[in-house]
């Protein structure tokens, strides 16, 4: 019933905007790739591209839920803290409580899902502003994470946990394979599946969505839980790679993801965004840093350049949408 309820005209106009968003960042990233390939010998080597993708593949997991939330018009600033929390909690269970790998991972991810669901419930039930609530949960969860850091006294994680991020399929790290598969799968689902299309409806106009019979409250709670889950999985893997509880993990990640998602065509007002766009946005940010390292430019300039690009991208987007 709800499938037919989605009106065709809105689908058409939405697709136009949405394609434009992710196309821009793809073109810009390709341009950057070509520029770096022609100006540097070391950039377009298998090893270099591979290391960029490997680095991005952890953040990509966290950007999945984040992008979905942006599509329905909410935001989750607690991703960075969850990203830090999940790995540290799991590591704490394994190092200090001697819990085996799988139960520790399960418990940690369960904790993430519960926290995400509570966040979503509060936002939906009391009609709260998601940015305010997630600033609170961000602080709270960061506190929990640093509690585990202190209790581990700088211990290294067990070998079995450190091996997680090094699992290979064929000759490629599992995280990269997962990233590629998920980008394709989720992008197709977002475009084709009616369940996923509903998210755009909720993001564009919540009241209209409700009239068409979409249960937006449930979707929002589920997506907050999903956001915490995907950030949690990414966090466990990055902790496995870093190999000890580093307090710097996930610091500022929320703004990094926001930048990537917005560059990839998402909007803070909801109704726009794509998985491919967010992923390419992350690759773009990583490539800029990579290019700066190759050319021996002060890597500190990265922040400056990212700041300018972010404002310019949103400015362009605002202009374009105005004339549409």
């Amino acid at each position: 019933m709800t499938d037919q309820a989605i009106p065709a005209p809105s689908t058409v106009s939405r697709k136009k905007k949405f394609n434009l968003g992710s196309l821009t960042i793809i073109v810009i990233t390709l341009g950057l790739f070509i520029l770096l390939t022609f100006t540097s010998d070391t950039f377009f080597t298998y090893r270099n591209i591979y290391s960029i993708l490997y680095g991005v593949s952890f953040q990509f997991l966290a950007v999945i839920g984040f992008t979905y939330l942006m599509i329905i018009g909410e935001i989750d600033l607690s991703v960075g803290s969850v990203y830090a929390f999940s790995g540290m909690f799991m590591g704490y269970l394994m190092v200090m409580q001697k819990v085996p790998l799988l139960p520790a991972m399960g418990l940690s991810l369960l904790a993430c899902i519960v926290m995400g669901a509570i966040t979503g419930f509060l936002i939906v039930r009391f009609k709260l502003n998601s940015m305010m609530v997630t600033i609170a949960t961000m602080t709270l969860i960061r506190g929990l994470a640093s509690n585990f850091v202190k209790r581990m006294y700088g211990a290294t994680y067990p070998t079995i946990m450190r091996r997680l991020s090094k699992i290979e399929i064929g000759d490629v790290f599992l995280t990269i394979v997962v990233m590629v598969v998920l980008v394709v799968a989720l992008e197709v689902l977002l475009k084709r599946s009616s369940i996923f299309k509903r998210m755009y409806g909720v993001g564009e106009n919540r009241l209209t969505a409700r009239i068409y019979g979409i249960k937006s409250d449930r979707i929002i709670i589920a997506l907050f839980a999903l956001s915490a889950l995907t950030a949690g999985i990414g966090g466990i893997l990055i902790s496995s790679r870093v190999s000890y509880a580093d307090t710097a993990i996930g610091l500022g990640l929320e703004f990094h993801l926001l930048t990537a998602a917005v560059l990839g065509g998402a909007s803070l007002y909801g109704g726009k965004g794509s998985m491919l766009g967010s992923c390419v946005g992350l690759i773009f940010l990583a490539t800029i840093l990579n290019g700066m390292v190759i050319f021996n430019i002060e890597p500190l300039l990265q922040q400056l350049i990212v700041g300018i690009i972010l404002i310019a991208a949103v400015f362009m987007d605002t202009r374009l949408n105005k004339y549409e």
Binding site: L258, E298, L300, Q303, G307, I308, L310, T318
Partner: peptide, 29 residues
């Protein structure tokens, strides 16, 4: 940026936050 270019305040001030920090770092090199 926020009021004339109509960029969302969150994005605009994250941007200027990055830019400000970047300038500080460059000055302190």
């Amino acid at each position: 940026i926020v009021e004339v270019a109509r960029v969302n305040a969150l994005i605009a001030t994250i941007g200027t936050m990055y830019i400000g920090r970047g300038i500080s770092e460059i000055v302190l090199v």
